[in-house]
């Protein structure tokens, strides 16, 4: 059951940072939903890796975590991106672009 829409190793950080940069504050569950919807169900975030990644990124100072209420008035932990996180996002986007162009070149070569 290795699904085709599992997120490629290493891109999770990029996707989380990007989502938080464009959408602002979100809790973990909202992040999974957001990525899934925006990618038209092409990408699905594995919960098992999302939370360790969120905690790691918080520790690295890229994200800030705080407790707040959802619209349904339930307590949840909300994450937002920090300045440091934005700089990391730029680096990640640049490296993704390099990877993408590299892969594309290999694929074009027949």
């Amino acid at each position: 059951m290795k699904a085709k829409n599992d997120i490629l190793q290493g891109t999770l950080v990029l996707l989380v940072l990007r989502s938080l940069a464009s959408r602002g504050k979100m809790h973990g569950y909202a992040i999974t939903n957001h990525i899934q919807q925006v990618s038209s169900d092409l990408l699905r975030v594995e919960e098992g890796s999302l939370y360790p990644a969120l905690h790691r990124m918080t520790q690295d100072g890229w994200l800030r975590a705080e407790w707040g209420k959802t619209e349904k008035n339930r307590e949840a932990r909300f994450y937002s991106i920090t300045a440091e996180g934005r700089r990391q996002l730029e680096r990640e986007e640049a490296s993704w672009a390099r990877l993408q162009s590299g892969v594309r070149k290999v694929l074009r070569y027949t």
């Binding site: 973990g28 919960e47 905690h55 339930r74 307590e75 949840a76």
Partner: peptide
Amino acid sequence: REIAKELDFHISERT
């Protein structure tokens, strides 16, 4: 405890 709470929230939302 906080991690557990966070995960519980996620699971119940998903459910």
